[in-house]
Nucleic acid binder design. Structure first.
Lengths: 239, 239
DNA sequence: GCCGTCCCGATTGTATACAGTGATTCGCGA
DNA sequence: TCGCGAATCACTGTATACAATCGGGACGGC
Protein backbone atom coordinates (compact mmCIF):
# COMPACT_ATOMS: atom_id res chain seq x y z
CA UNK A 1 0.00 0.00 0.00
CA UNK A 2 2.12 2.82 -1.28
CA UNK A 3 1.51 6.30 -2.57
CA UNK A 4 -0.33 6.72 -5.84
CA UNK A 5 -1.74 9.90 -7.33
CA UNK A 6 -4.38 10.82 -4.78
CA UNK A 7 -5.51 14.11 -6.30
CA UNK A 8 -5.90 14.13 -10.06
CA UNK A 9 -3.19 16.50 -11.16
CA UNK A 10 -5.23 19.17 -12.83
CA UNK A 11 -4.07 21.13 -15.81
CA UNK A 12 -4.14 24.86 -16.28
CA UNK A 13 -6.95 25.33 -13.79
CA UNK A 14 -4.82 24.11 -10.88
CA UNK A 15 -3.47 27.58 -9.89
CA UNK A 16 -7.01 28.93 -9.66
CA UNK A 17 -8.17 25.96 -7.63
CA UNK A 18 -5.19 26.28 -5.30
CA UNK A 19 -5.56 30.03 -4.86
CA UNK A 20 -9.24 29.80 -3.96
CA UNK A 21 -8.74 26.80 -1.69
CA UNK A 22 -5.85 28.48 0.10
CA UNK A 23 -7.83 31.68 0.52
CA UNK A 24 -10.68 29.73 2.06
CA UNK A 25 -8.36 27.92 4.46
CA UNK A 26 -6.91 31.28 5.49
CA UNK A 27 -10.40 32.68 5.84
CA UNK A 28 -9.62 35.49 3.43
CA UNK A 29 -12.59 34.36 1.36
CA UNK A 30 -15.64 34.32 3.60
CA UNK A 31 -18.55 31.95 3.09
CA UNK A 32 -21.16 33.30 0.71
CA UNK A 33 -18.75 35.55 -1.14
CA UNK A 34 -19.48 35.52 -4.86
CA UNK A 35 -16.92 34.45 -7.43
CA UNK A 36 -17.87 35.73 -10.85
CA UNK A 37 -16.18 34.06 -13.77
CA UNK A 38 -15.22 37.41 -15.24
CA UNK A 39 -13.28 38.48 -12.16
CA UNK A 40 -11.30 35.26 -12.07
CA UNK A 41 -10.63 35.55 -15.78
CA UNK A 42 -9.14 38.96 -15.19
CA UNK A 43 -7.14 37.90 -12.13
CA UNK A 44 -5.56 34.85 -13.71
CA UNK A 45 -5.39 35.89 -17.33
CA UNK A 46 -6.99 32.75 -18.70
CA UNK A 47 -10.20 32.13 -20.56
CA UNK A 48 -13.57 31.44 -19.01
CA UNK A 49 -13.21 27.82 -20.05
CA UNK A 50 -10.37 27.32 -17.60
CA UNK A 51 -12.08 29.28 -14.87
CA UNK A 52 -15.17 27.14 -15.23
CA UNK A 53 -13.14 23.97 -14.90
CA UNK A 54 -11.62 25.29 -11.69
CA UNK A 55 -15.05 26.24 -10.36
CA UNK A 56 -16.43 22.83 -11.25
CA UNK A 57 -13.69 21.10 -9.30
CA UNK A 58 -14.11 23.48 -6.36
CA UNK A 59 -17.83 22.77 -6.37
CA UNK A 60 -17.23 19.04 -6.39
CA UNK A 61 -15.09 19.44 -3.29
CA UNK A 62 -17.83 21.50 -1.66
CA UNK A 63 -15.61 24.56 -1.39
CA UNK A 64 -17.84 26.63 -3.63
CA UNK A 65 -21.55 26.42 -4.31
CA UNK A 66 -22.69 26.44 -7.92
CA UNK A 67 -26.24 27.62 -8.46
CA UNK A 68 -27.60 27.33 -12.01
CA UNK A 69 -27.63 30.69 -13.77
CA UNK A 70 -26.28 32.33 -10.65
CA UNK A 71 -22.68 31.33 -10.74
CA UNK A 72 -20.35 30.43 -7.95
CA UNK A 73 -20.00 31.57 -4.38
CA UNK A 74 -17.94 30.30 -1.49
CA UNK A 75 -19.98 27.57 0.14
CA UNK A 76 -21.90 28.55 3.22
CA UNK A 77 -22.94 25.23 4.71
CA UNK A 78 -26.15 25.06 6.69
CA UNK A 79 -26.28 23.95 10.30
CA UNK A 80 -27.57 20.56 9.23
CA UNK A 81 -24.66 20.14 6.86
CA UNK A 82 -22.31 21.18 9.64
CA UNK A 83 -23.67 18.55 11.99
CA UNK A 84 -23.41 15.93 9.26
CA UNK A 85 -19.82 16.84 8.46
CA UNK A 86 -18.75 16.70 12.09
CA UNK A 87 -20.46 13.37 12.56
CA UNK A 88 -18.70 12.08 9.45
CA UNK A 89 -15.40 13.32 10.82
CA UNK A 90 -15.97 11.50 14.09
CA UNK A 91 -16.66 8.28 12.22
CA UNK A 92 -13.84 8.65 9.76
CA UNK A 93 -11.05 9.97 11.94
CA UNK A 94 -11.77 7.57 14.78
CA UNK A 95 -11.83 4.67 12.33
CA UNK A 96 -8.47 5.74 10.94
CA UNK A 97 -6.75 5.79 14.32
CA UNK A 98 -5.83 2.09 14.51
CA UNK A 99 -4.00 2.42 11.20
CA UNK A 100 -2.29 5.57 12.46
CA UNK A 101 -1.16 3.79 15.59
CA UNK A 102 0.07 0.82 13.62
CA UNK A 103 1.99 2.80 11.01
CA UNK A 104 3.15 6.09 12.51
CA UNK A 105 6.88 6.41 13.16
CA UNK A 106 8.08 8.12 16.35
CA UNK A 107 9.72 10.93 14.42
CA UNK A 108 6.46 11.62 12.60
CA UNK A 109 4.71 11.99 15.94
CA UNK A 110 7.48 14.35 17.06
CA UNK A 111 6.95 16.41 13.95
CA UNK A 112 3.27 16.49 14.80
CA UNK A 113 4.08 17.69 18.30
CA UNK A 114 6.10 20.56 16.92
CA UNK A 115 3.12 21.46 14.78
CA UNK A 116 0.99 21.67 17.90
CA UNK A 117 3.63 23.96 19.44
CA UNK A 118 3.33 26.27 16.43
CA UNK A 119 -0.41 26.13 16.85
CA UNK A 120 -0.10 27.18 20.49
CA UNK A 121 2.28 29.98 19.51
CA UNK A 122 -0.15 31.32 16.94
CA UNK A 123 -2.91 31.19 19.52
CA UNK A 124 -0.91 33.13 22.09
CA UNK A 125 0.01 35.67 19.43
CA UNK A 126 -3.71 36.17 18.81
CA UNK A 127 -3.12 35.15 15.21
CA UNK A 128 -6.53 33.56 14.84
CA UNK A 129 -6.28 32.88 11.14
CA UNK A 130 -2.94 31.16 11.37
CA UNK A 131 -4.11 29.25 14.40
CA UNK A 132 -7.25 27.94 12.77
CA UNK A 133 -5.31 26.97 9.67
CA UNK A 134 -2.75 25.14 11.77
CA UNK A 135 -5.31 23.21 13.74
CA UNK A 136 -6.81 22.03 10.47
CA UNK A 137 -3.33 21.13 9.32
CA UNK A 138 -2.92 19.02 12.45
CA UNK A 139 -5.88 16.80 11.64
CA UNK A 140 -4.75 16.47 8.05
CA UNK A 141 -1.25 15.41 8.96
CA UNK A 142 -2.51 13.08 11.65
CA UNK A 143 -4.75 11.19 9.25
CA UNK A 144 -1.95 11.16 6.69
CA UNK A 145 -0.06 8.89 9.07
CA UNK A 146 -2.64 6.17 8.41
CA UNK A 147 -1.04 5.94 4.95
CA UNK A 148 -4.34 5.42 3.20
CA UNK A 149 -4.71 7.87 0.29
CA UNK A 150 -8.46 7.39 0.03
CA UNK A 151 -9.19 8.17 3.64
CA UNK A 152 -6.71 11.03 3.50
CA UNK A 153 -8.55 12.60 0.59
CA UNK A 154 -11.89 12.41 2.36
CA UNK A 155 -10.42 13.74 5.58
CA UNK A 156 -8.91 16.66 3.69
CA UNK A 157 -12.28 17.51 2.22
CA UNK A 158 -13.97 17.35 5.57
CA UNK A 159 -11.35 19.41 7.36
CA UNK A 160 -11.59 22.12 4.74
CA UNK A 161 -15.35 22.18 5.10
CA UNK A 162 -15.00 22.32 8.87
CA UNK A 163 -12.91 25.46 8.56
CA UNK A 164 -15.65 27.06 6.49
CA UNK A 165 -18.16 26.09 9.13
CA UNK A 166 -15.96 27.48 11.85
CA UNK A 167 -15.82 30.78 10.00
CA UNK A 168 -19.60 30.77 9.78
CA UNK A 169 -20.73 29.61 13.18
CA UNK A 170 -17.90 30.31 15.60
CA UNK A 171 -18.94 33.01 18.03
CA UNK A 172 -16.31 35.75 17.83
CA UNK A 173 -13.67 35.61 20.52
CA UNK A 174 -14.27 31.93 21.05
CA UNK A 175 -11.68 29.20 20.74
CA UNK A 176 -12.10 26.39 18.25
CA UNK A 177 -9.77 23.50 18.85
CA UNK A 178 -7.63 23.25 21.93
CA UNK A 179 -3.96 22.51 21.41
CA UNK A 180 -3.96 20.62 24.67
CA UNK A 181 -6.46 18.09 23.35
CA UNK A 182 -4.23 17.61 20.34
CA UNK A 183 -1.24 16.84 22.54
CA UNK A 184 -3.15 14.30 24.60
CA UNK A 185 -4.22 12.63 21.39
CA UNK A 186 -0.62 12.32 20.21
CA UNK A 187 0.35 10.84 23.56
CA UNK A 188 -2.35 8.19 23.31
CA UNK A 189 -1.17 7.31 19.82
CA UNK A 190 2.45 7.15 20.94
CA UNK A 191 1.34 4.79 23.74
CA UNK A 192 -0.45 2.67 21.13
CA UNK A 193 -3.62 2.89 23.20
CA UNK A 194 -6.36 2.50 20.58
CA UNK A 195 -9.27 2.82 23.00
CA UNK A 196 -8.01 5.97 24.63
CA UNK A 197 -7.05 7.56 21.32
CA UNK A 198 -10.49 6.87 19.88
CA UNK A 199 -12.18 8.22 22.99
CA UNK A 200 -10.06 11.38 22.89
CA UNK A 201 -10.67 11.95 19.18
CA UNK A 202 -14.40 11.45 19.59
CA UNK A 203 -14.54 13.85 22.54
CA UNK A 204 -12.29 16.36 20.81
CA UNK A 205 -14.44 16.55 17.69
CA UNK A 206 -17.61 16.69 19.76
CA UNK A 207 -16.12 19.58 21.68
CA UNK A 208 -15.18 21.36 18.46
CA UNK A 209 -18.73 21.03 17.21
CA UNK A 210 -20.21 22.05 20.55
CA UNK A 211 -18.26 25.30 20.48
CA UNK A 212 -20.08 26.31 17.32
CA UNK A 213 -23.32 28.21 17.63
CA UNK A 214 -25.41 25.59 15.90
CA UNK A 215 -28.38 25.87 18.26
CA UNK A 216 -28.66 29.58 18.79
CA UNK A 217 -31.10 30.28 16.05
CA UNK A 218 -32.20 27.12 14.42
CA UNK A 219 -31.68 27.31 10.68
CA UNK A 220 -32.58 30.71 9.35
CA UNK A 221 -36.07 30.30 7.86
CA UNK A 222 -35.94 30.22 4.10
CA UNK A 223 -39.64 30.62 3.78
CA UNK A 224 -41.44 33.86 4.49
CA UNK A 225 -44.40 32.22 6.18
CA UNK A 226 -42.05 30.36 8.46
CA UNK A 227 -40.11 33.53 9.19
CA UNK A 228 -43.29 35.31 10.26
CA UNK A 229 -44.38 32.23 12.17
CA UNK A 230 -47.62 32.10 10.24
CA UNK A 231 -49.36 29.25 8.48
CA UNK A 232 -50.70 29.86 5.00
CA UNK A 233 -54.49 30.22 5.13
CA UNK A 234 -55.13 28.31 1.94
CA UNK A 235 -53.61 24.99 1.13
CA UNK A 236 -50.61 25.75 -1.06
CA UNK A 237 -48.94 22.41 -1.67
CA UNK A 238 -47.32 22.09 1.74
CA UNK A 239 -44.09 20.27 0.97
CA UNK B 1 -29.89 16.05 10.58
CA UNK B 2 -32.08 15.90 7.55
CA UNK B 3 -31.57 15.47 3.86
CA UNK B 4 -29.87 18.20 1.90
CA UNK B 5 -28.58 18.09 -1.65
CA UNK B 6 -25.90 15.45 -1.39
CA UNK B 7 -24.95 15.27 -5.05
CA UNK B 8 -24.65 18.57 -6.83
CA UNK B 9 -27.49 18.43 -9.31
CA UNK B 10 -25.59 18.73 -12.53
CA UNK B 11 -26.95 20.44 -15.58
CA UNK B 12 -26.94 19.17 -19.12
CA UNK B 13 -24.05 16.82 -18.50
CA UNK B 14 -26.04 14.74 -16.02
CA UNK B 15 -27.42 12.25 -18.60
CA UNK B 16 -23.91 11.50 -19.84
CA UNK B 17 -22.61 11.08 -16.31
CA UNK B 18 -25.50 8.80 -15.43
CA UNK B 19 -25.18 6.69 -18.56
CA UNK B 20 -21.47 6.10 -18.09
CA UNK B 21 -21.81 5.45 -14.38
CA UNK B 22 -24.66 3.00 -14.92
CA UNK B 23 -22.74 1.22 -17.65
CA UNK B 24 -19.78 0.83 -15.33
CA UNK B 25 -21.96 -0.53 -12.54
CA UNK B 26 -23.44 -3.03 -14.98
CA UNK B 27 -19.97 -3.90 -16.20
CA UNK B 28 -20.93 -3.07 -19.77
CA UNK B 29 -18.01 -0.64 -19.84
CA UNK B 30 -14.87 -2.52 -18.91
CA UNK B 31 -11.91 -0.91 -17.14
CA UNK B 32 -9.44 0.63 -19.55
CA UNK B 33 -11.97 1.21 -22.29
CA UNK B 34 -11.39 4.53 -24.01
CA UNK B 35 -14.02 7.26 -24.13
CA UNK B 36 -13.25 9.75 -26.86
CA UNK B 37 -14.99 13.06 -26.65
CA UNK B 38 -16.12 12.82 -30.26
CA UNK B 39 -17.95 9.54 -29.75
CA UNK B 40 -19.84 10.87 -26.73
CA UNK B 41 -20.68 14.03 -28.67
CA UNK B 42 -22.22 11.91 -31.38
CA UNK B 43 -24.07 9.61 -28.98
CA UNK B 44 -25.63 12.36 -26.91
CA UNK B 45 -25.98 15.11 -29.46
CA UNK B 46 -24.38 17.80 -27.36
CA UNK B 47 -21.25 19.86 -27.77
CA UNK B 48 -17.80 18.86 -26.57
CA UNK B 49 -18.14 21.42 -23.80
CA UNK B 50 -20.85 19.37 -22.15
CA UNK B 51 -19.06 16.10 -22.73
CA UNK B 52 -15.95 17.49 -21.10
CA UNK B 53 -17.91 18.58 -18.04
CA UNK B 54 -19.31 15.07 -17.70
CA UNK B 55 -15.84 13.55 -18.06
CA UNK B 56 -14.44 15.96 -15.50
CA UNK B 57 -17.06 14.91 -12.96
CA UNK B 58 -16.57 11.23 -13.75
CA UNK B 59 -12.84 11.67 -13.27
CA UNK B 60 -13.36 13.39 -9.95
CA UNK B 61 -15.36 10.38 -8.80
CA UNK B 62 -12.60 8.07 -9.99
CA UNK B 63 -14.88 6.38 -12.50
CA UNK B 64 -12.79 7.45 -15.47
CA UNK B 65 -9.12 8.26 -15.73
CA UNK B 66 -8.13 11.50 -17.44
CA UNK B 67 -4.63 11.53 -18.87
CA UNK B 68 -3.43 14.86 -20.28
CA UNK B 69 -3.54 14.90 -24.07
CA UNK B 70 -4.77 11.32 -24.06
CA UNK B 71 -8.37 11.76 -23.11
CA UNK B 72 -10.53 9.62 -20.91
CA UNK B 73 -10.77 5.93 -20.29
CA UNK B 74 -12.67 3.89 -17.74
CA UNK B 75 -10.51 3.74 -14.65
CA UNK B 76 -8.48 0.60 -14.18
CA UNK B 77 -7.32 0.84 -10.59
CA UNK B 78 -4.04 -0.77 -9.63
CA UNK B 79 -3.76 -3.45 -6.99
CA UNK B 80 -2.43 -0.91 -4.52
CA UNK B 81 -5.41 1.30 -5.12
CA UNK B 82 -7.68 -1.69 -4.69
CA UNK B 83 -6.19 -2.54 -1.32
CA UNK B 84 -6.48 1.09 -0.23
CA UNK B 85 -10.13 1.30 -1.26
CA UNK B 86 -11.05 -1.87 0.57
CA UNK B 87 -9.24 -0.73 3.68
CA UNK B 88 -11.07 2.58 3.46
CA UNK B 89 -14.37 0.73 3.11
CA UNK B 90 -13.63 -1.33 6.21
CA UNK B 91 -12.92 1.83 8.18
CA UNK B 92 -15.85 3.78 6.84
CA UNK B 93 -18.59 1.17 6.77
CA UNK B 94 -17.70 -0.22 10.18
CA UNK B 95 -17.65 3.27 11.62
CA UNK B 96 -21.08 3.95 10.17
CA UNK B 97 -22.69 0.88 11.74
CA UNK B 98 -23.50 2.39 15.15
CA UNK B 99 -25.47 5.13 13.43
CA UNK B 100 -27.21 2.54 11.26
CA UNK B 101 -28.18 0.55 14.33
CA UNK B 102 -29.42 3.64 16.11
CA UNK B 103 -31.48 5.00 13.22
CA UNK B 104 -32.66 2.13 11.05
CA UNK B 105 -36.38 1.34 11.20
CA UNK B 106 -37.51 -2.30 11.19
CA UNK B 107 -39.29 -1.93 7.86
CA UNK B 108 -36.11 -0.57 6.30
CA UNK B 109 -34.26 -3.67 7.43
CA UNK B 110 -37.03 -5.81 5.95
CA UNK B 111 -36.66 -3.98 2.66
CA UNK B 112 -32.95 -4.70 2.84
CA UNK B 113 -33.66 -8.39 3.43
CA UNK B 114 -35.81 -8.51 0.31
CA UNK B 115 -32.93 -6.95 -1.58
CA UNK B 116 -30.69 -9.78 -0.43
CA UNK B 117 -33.32 -12.25 -1.65
CA UNK B 118 -33.19 -10.64 -5.09
CA UNK B 119 -29.43 -10.87 -4.91
CA UNK B 120 -29.61 -14.57 -4.18
CA UNK B 121 -32.10 -15.05 -7.01
CA UNK B 122 -29.80 -13.35 -9.48
CA UNK B 123 -26.94 -15.50 -8.28
CA UNK B 124 -28.88 -18.73 -8.74
CA UNK B 125 -29.96 -17.56 -12.20
CA UNK B 126 -26.26 -17.15 -13.05
CA UNK B 127 -26.99 -13.49 -13.78
CA UNK B 128 -23.57 -12.36 -12.66
CA UNK B 129 -23.91 -8.76 -13.77
CA UNK B 130 -27.20 -8.27 -12.01
CA UNK B 131 -25.91 -10.04 -8.97
CA UNK B 132 -22.78 -7.91 -8.67
CA UNK B 133 -24.81 -4.76 -9.15
CA UNK B 134 -27.26 -5.84 -6.47
CA UNK B 135 -24.56 -6.66 -3.95
CA UNK B 136 -23.16 -3.17 -4.46
CA UNK B 137 -26.66 -1.81 -4.04
CA UNK B 138 -26.91 -3.63 -0.72
CA UNK B 139 -23.93 -1.83 0.76
CA UNK B 140 -25.17 1.49 -0.55
CA UNK B 141 -28.61 1.09 0.96
CA UNK B 142 -27.20 -0.21 4.21
CA UNK B 143 -25.01 2.84 4.69
CA UNK B 144 -27.90 5.07 3.65
CA UNK B 145 -29.64 3.94 6.85
CA UNK B 146 -27.03 5.84 8.86
CA UNK B 147 -28.75 8.97 7.54
CA UNK B 148 -25.52 10.85 7.06
CA UNK B 149 -25.33 12.31 3.54
CA UNK B 150 -21.57 12.85 3.70
CA UNK B 151 -20.72 9.31 4.63
CA UNK B 152 -23.26 8.07 2.12
CA UNK B 153 -21.59 9.97 -0.68
CA UNK B 154 -18.18 8.56 0.17
CA UNK B 155 -19.57 5.05 0.52
CA UNK B 156 -21.20 5.35 -2.89
CA UNK B 157 -17.91 6.34 -4.44
CA UNK B 158 -16.09 3.48 -2.82
CA UNK B 159 -18.69 0.88 -3.73
CA UNK B 160 -18.60 1.98 -7.35
CA UNK B 161 -14.84 1.70 -7.38
CA UNK B 162 -15.06 -1.70 -5.77
CA UNK B 163 -17.22 -2.91 -8.62
CA UNK B 164 -14.60 -1.76 -11.10
CA UNK B 165 -11.95 -3.59 -9.12
CA UNK B 166 -14.09 -6.69 -9.02
CA UNK B 167 -14.37 -6.57 -12.80
CA UNK B 168 -10.60 -6.29 -13.02
CA UNK B 169 -9.33 -8.74 -10.47
CA UNK B 170 -12.09 -11.27 -9.88
CA UNK B 171 -11.02 -14.65 -11.19
CA UNK B 172 -13.72 -15.77 -13.59
CA UNK B 173 -16.25 -18.16 -12.12
CA UNK B 174 -15.55 -16.92 -8.63
CA UNK B 175 -18.10 -15.44 -6.27
CA UNK B 176 -17.69 -11.92 -4.94
CA UNK B 177 -19.91 -11.18 -2.00
CA UNK B 178 -21.93 -13.86 -0.30
CA UNK B 179 -25.60 -13.16 0.26
CA UNK B 180 -25.44 -15.18 3.44
CA UNK B 181 -22.94 -12.80 4.98
CA UNK B 182 -25.27 -9.95 4.10
CA UNK B 183 -28.16 -11.62 5.91
CA UNK B 184 -26.10 -12.25 9.04
CA UNK B 185 -25.12 -8.59 9.01
CA UNK B 186 -28.75 -7.49 8.89
CA UNK B 187 -29.55 -9.81 11.78
CA UNK B 188 -26.80 -8.32 13.91
CA UNK B 189 -28.08 -4.84 13.14
CA UNK B 190 -31.65 -5.82 13.94
CA UNK B 191 -30.38 -7.20 17.26
CA UNK B 192 -28.64 -3.88 17.87
CA UNK B 193 -25.41 -5.72 18.52
CA UNK B 194 -22.77 -3.17 17.55
CA UNK B 195 -19.79 -5.38 18.27
CA UNK B 196 -21.03 -8.32 16.26
CA UNK B 197 -22.16 -6.13 13.36
CA UNK B 198 -18.77 -4.46 13.20
CA UNK B 199 -16.99 -7.80 13.36
CA UNK B 200 -19.18 -9.21 10.59
CA UNK B 201 -18.73 -6.18 8.36
CA UNK B 202 -14.98 -6.22 8.84
CA UNK B 203 -14.80 -9.93 8.07
CA UNK B 204 -17.16 -9.61 5.12
CA UNK B 205 -15.14 -6.88 3.44
CA UNK B 206 -11.90 -8.70 4.14
CA UNK B 207 -13.38 -11.78 2.50
CA UNK B 208 -14.49 -9.76 -0.52
CA UNK B 209 -10.98 -8.41 -0.92
CA UNK B 210 -9.40 -11.80 -0.35
CA UNK B 211 -11.42 -13.29 -3.20
CA UNK B 212 -9.76 -10.89 -5.62
CA UNK B 213 -6.54 -11.98 -7.27
CA UNK B 214 -4.46 -9.20 -5.82
CA UNK B 215 -1.43 -11.34 -5.07
CA UNK B 216 -1.21 -13.54 -8.12
CA UNK B 217 1.21 -11.40 -10.01
CA UNK B 218 2.30 -8.52 -7.92
CA UNK B 219 1.84 -5.30 -9.82
CA UNK B 220 2.90 -5.76 -13.41
CA UNK B 221 6.47 -4.43 -13.57
CA UNK B 222 6.64 -1.04 -15.21
CA UNK B 223 10.38 -1.16 -15.54
CA UNK B 224 12.16 -3.30 -18.07
CA UNK B 225 14.97 -4.32 -15.73
CA UNK B 226 12.43 -5.37 -13.16
CA UNK B 227 10.47 -7.31 -15.75
CA UNK B 228 13.57 -9.27 -16.76
CA UNK B 229 14.49 -9.69 -13.10
CA UNK B 230 17.86 -8.11 -13.68
CA UNK B 231 19.73 -5.46 -11.82
CA UNK B 232 21.32 -2.64 -13.78
CA UNK B 233 25.10 -3.14 -13.93
CA UNK B 234 25.94 0.51 -13.52
CA UNK B 235 24.42 2.79 -10.95
CA UNK B 236 21.59 4.57 -12.71
CA UNK B 237 19.93 6.69 -10.07
CA UNK B 238 17.95 3.94 -8.36
CA UNK B 239 14.75 5.70 -7.32
C1' DG C 1 16.76 -4.98 -43.66
C1' DC C 2 16.90 -1.76 -39.93
C1' DC C 3 16.71 2.59 -37.87
C1' DG C 4 15.92 7.41 -37.55
C1' DT C 5 13.20 11.28 -39.27
C1' DC C 6 9.50 13.73 -41.05
C1' DC C 7 4.84 14.38 -41.95
C1' DC C 8 -0.02 13.67 -41.37
C1' DG C 9 -4.25 12.40 -39.12
C1' DA C 10 -6.69 12.12 -34.98
C1' DT C 11 -7.73 13.93 -30.59
C1' DT C 12 -7.44 17.00 -26.95
C1' DG C 13 -6.62 21.94 -24.96
C1' DT C 14 -7.99 26.78 -25.07
C1' DA C 15 -10.26 30.87 -26.51
C1' DT C 16 -14.09 33.26 -28.14
C1' DA C 17 -18.59 34.17 -30.05
C1' DC C 18 -23.38 33.94 -29.38
C1' DA C 19 -27.66 32.69 -26.95
C1' DG C 20 -30.38 32.56 -22.79
C1' DT C 21 -31.61 34.01 -18.17
C1' DG C 22 -32.48 36.76 -14.03
C1' DA C 23 -32.41 41.17 -11.76
C1' DT C 24 -32.22 46.01 -11.71
C1' DT C 25 -33.65 50.29 -13.41
C1' DC C 26 -35.86 53.57 -16.01
C1' DG C 27 -39.99 55.54 -17.79
C1' DC C 28 -44.81 55.97 -18.27
C1' DG C 29 -49.36 56.59 -16.54
C1' DA C 30 -52.60 56.97 -12.86
C1' DT D 1 -45.74 59.68 -5.33
C1' DC D 2 -46.60 55.15 -6.24
C1' DG D 3 -47.25 51.03 -9.03
C1' DC D 4 -46.45 48.53 -13.02
C1' DG D 5 -44.18 47.09 -17.14
C1' DA D 6 -40.60 46.99 -20.46
C1' DA D 7 -35.97 47.73 -21.78
C1' DT D 8 -31.31 46.96 -20.28
C1' DC D 9 -27.40 45.07 -18.16
C1' DA D 10 -24.53 41.70 -16.15
C1' DC D 11 -23.80 37.23 -16.03
C1' DT D 12 -23.88 32.40 -17.05
C1' DG D 13 -24.84 28.34 -20.51
C1' DT D 14 -23.57 26.29 -24.92
C1' DA D 15 -21.45 25.78 -29.29
C1' DT D 16 -17.78 26.28 -32.32
C1' DA D 17 -13.36 27.72 -34.17
C1' DC D 18 -8.56 27.45 -33.80
C1' DA D 19 -4.09 25.91 -31.69
C1' DA D 20 -1.29 22.36 -29.69
C1' DT D 21 0.05 17.74 -29.00
C1' DC D 22 0.71 12.83 -29.59
C1' DG D 23 1.00 8.51 -32.19
C1' DG D 24 1.62 6.11 -36.33
C1' DG D 25 3.05 5.40 -40.95
C1' DA D 26 5.74 6.47 -44.97
C1' DC D 27 10.01 7.60 -46.68
C1' DG D 28 14.92 7.78 -47.13
C1' DG D 29 19.64 6.99 -45.51
C1' DC D 30 22.85 3.67 -43.74
Amino acid sequence: MQSYPTTIQGGTEQPIYDAVAAAVLDQRLAPGMRLTEASLVELFGVSRTIVRMALLRLAHDHIVQLKPNHGASIASPSRDETRAVFEARRMLECAALPAVIARALPRQLDSLRSLVRQEDLAFRARDMRGWIRLSGEFHRRLIALARNPVILRYANELVTQSLLMTALYMPSGQTACSADEHLQLIDAIAARDERRAARLMQAHLEACEARLALDWTEERPSDLAEALQLRPRRASAAR
